[in-house]
Design a protein around this nucleic acid. Structure first.
Length: 595
DNA sequence: ATAGGGTTAG
């Protein structure tokens, strides 16, 4: 234990004072004695000493330290001297790294420039980082101007941070790309920043494309680049590419940080190979809570809820204390596997044993858990009793469950309510329109379509992606853009005939879900997942499994059709939809029709 | 003294 007592400190001067003070600050790390320390530093006249100040700002790494550090700048006898840039940099950095105070970093930067204190090459990475956190494009652009004005337009560190800043600001990605293209020489950080920028925005195709260009460029990707590429693979559901990245990491001996291993686990789980995710996880020496949570989430998505729960218990036994995110994974695992009692119990233990205040996501999981299992009344009561105002996601969860359990009147009522709350959100109308389809009330369905058209709201088209021979193909319903489309459509017809012979009957209410009247006959078989599967049947050897990724939830008709296809063509078909995985095999689906 | 990264309800 270190006790602090300023009175006993040896007050000395000059270099000795500095050394003394630094040593003392080292001792005082983590001690909440900042105000005494502050007095002490002023007494020694060391408040403009850059080394002392940096040390001071870094200890406790908290708000207080930053406030005291910045107060030195305005001490009555503060003198402007050679080190002032350094002083400002210290304060700007401290603020830039404090989540809620990034705007203060900008204020100090502005104050600095106003006082004619020249920024140096260390100033801008800090300032730009703060700007990235604030996500203000126009501020970023003006900082960009200053960077050029002060002559740091060819500093790689500064430019890399600027790419990151542009990628973080809405509407900035194009500016980032221009900057990136114009850079005299890019290093792996530049590439990672740009690839990561695309990946974060969900521009995963661009991220992967850029990674291919990076390989041609000869800059060696490092583990951080790989994390960004993997997150693009995860988004696309591109398992082959993900596997290639994984092999590359082994081959090139890229350092496997915990983050990289976690990204691999997440990729394998979300691209459909949860067994590989599990193996990787078991091989990890240092796991953290993210590793566990990623795998639990993976189990949840694949409907392997019991294993998700065991992992959660195992995590606790290993000494990791669950956090709010891991509870989301656990509760999702329960709801997707109809483990109602387990879900309830864990929800209670979250507050009672771990003191975690449930967030809207946790309530959402519970509403899903109950309503999906058919306990609609209880789910409704739960919504009315919860202490947070239910959000549209909660209402949509209820609507979907009501529809699945035949409570059409109730789902109509809720759907009308959320349209009132969010009149411009397309998915609200689609829900109501689907309810009318199920009620066979075509007139009302048409009216909804007309209302949407009048408001200029368009439905997001369903699309399905498939990865074949290092290419990613995307199909949308009724799509005829593919070169081989006539062959594909013939295949769909053939599949249709075989399915009928096997006893398949189209579920009309579902088939007509999202289709305009004039297209009704045409689109019967043309949902994007059917096109993608027909394509895969044409292009892949018999007996191999087929993996597809859908952007929306699979419709009931496609779900039953794919069951037939898996049997007729003797193929395992793995499908990821918006919510979860379906493994079709021999006429059955792993979700046991519980989705 | 400076830059880029992993899990989050339907």
């Amino acid at each position: 234990m270190v006790y602090f007592s300023p009175g006993k400190m040896l007050i000395s001067h000059g270099r000795a004072a500095e050394q003394n003070c630094l040593a003392f600050l080292e001792l005082c790390n983590n001690l909440p004695k900042l105000s005494q320390l502050h007095t002490y530093i002023l007494k020694l006249g060391l408040h403009s000493n850059p080394l002392v100040l940096t040390k001071f700002a870094s200890i406790s790494s908290g708000l207080n330290a930053i406030c005291y550090a910045s107060s030195f700048l305005f001490a009555p006898d503060a003198k402007l001297h050679l080190y002032d840039t350094f002083l400002f940099n210290t304060v700007i950095r401290a603020y830039a790294e404090t989540s809620d105070l990034k705007h203060s970093a900008i204020s100090y930067y502005k104050a600095m420039v106003k006082d004619c204190i020249l920024p140096n090459k260390f100033t801008y990475p800090f300032v730009l980082k703060a700007c990235a956190g604030l996500r203000k494009l126009n501020l970023g652009q003006s900082l960009h101007g200053s960077v050029l004005k002060y002559g740091f337009g060819d500093d790689t560190h500064v430019l890399n941070t600027m790419i990151h800043m542009y990628c973080s600001c809405p509407g900035g990605i194009e500016f980032a790309r221009i900057l990136f293209e114009e850079m005299p020489k890019c290093d792996s950080v530049s590439w990672s920043a740009m690839i990561g920028g695309y990946a974060k925005l969900g521009m995963s195709i661009e991220a992967v494309q850029l990674f291919r260009e990076m390989q041609i460029s000869g800059v060696r990707p490092d583990e951080i680049t790989m994390v960004s590429v993997l997150s693009a693979c995860t988004d696309l559901g591109a398992l082959d590419l993900g596997k290639w990245v994984s092999a590359y990491i082994e081959r090139e001996k890229v350092e496997k940080s915990v983050e990289l291993s976690n990204a691999l686990i997440d990729m394998f789980a979300k691209c459909g190979d949860v067994e590989e995710a599990l193996m990787l996880f078991r091989d990890m020496k240092d796991k953290n809570i993210v590793s566990w949570t990623s795998l639990i989430d993976g189990m949840a998505m694949h409907g392997r809820g019991t294993e998700g729960i065991s992992l959660f218990e195992e995590m606790k036994s290993s000494g990791i204390v669950p956090d709010d995110v891991s509870f989301i994974g656990l509760l999702t695992a329960c709801s997707h596997s109809r483990l109602v009692e387990e879900g309830r119990r864990h929800f209670d233990s979250m507050t009672k044993e771990y003191g975690i205040l449930p967030k809207i996501e946790h309530y959402g999981c519970m509403v899903d858990l109950l309503s999906r299992a058919g306990l609609i009344k209880e789910a409704l009561e739960f919504v009315h009793k919860m202490p947070i105002k239910p959000n549209p996601i909660i209402w949509r969860t209820l609507i979907t469950a009501c529809r699945a359990h035949g409570e059409l009147k109730l789902s109509e009522k809720i759907a009308r309510k959320i349209i009132k709350d969010e009149p411009m959100l397309e998915s609200n109308y689609v829900l109501l329109s689907n309810i009318y389809a199920k009620m066979l009330q075509w007139q009302k369905k048409t009216t909804i379509r007309e209302v949407m058209a009048k408001k200029g709201i368009r439905k997001i088209p369903g699309s399905t992606m498939i990865e074949l021979d290092n290419q990613i193909y995307e199909f949308v319903a009724g799509d005829k853009s593919h070169i081989q489309h006539s062959e594909i459509y013939r295949m769909v017809e053939e599949i249709g005939k075989k399915m009928k012979m096997a006893g398949y009957v189209a579920a009309t209410s579902e088939v007509l879900l999202d289709i305009d009247d004039e297209d009704k006959e045409d689109v019967l078989h043309w949902h994007s997942e059917k096109l993608a599967i027909a394509f895969a049947l044409l292009k892949t050897p018999p007996g191999t499994s087929i993996r597809i990724v859908k952007n929306l939830r699979v419709c009931g008709d496609c779900h039953s059709a794919i069951k037939f296809i898996s049997k007729i063509y003797n193929r395992e078909i793995v499908m990821r939809d918006r919510n979860r995985f379906h493994h079709f095999k021999n006429g059955q689906c792993s979700c046991t029709d519980f989705w």
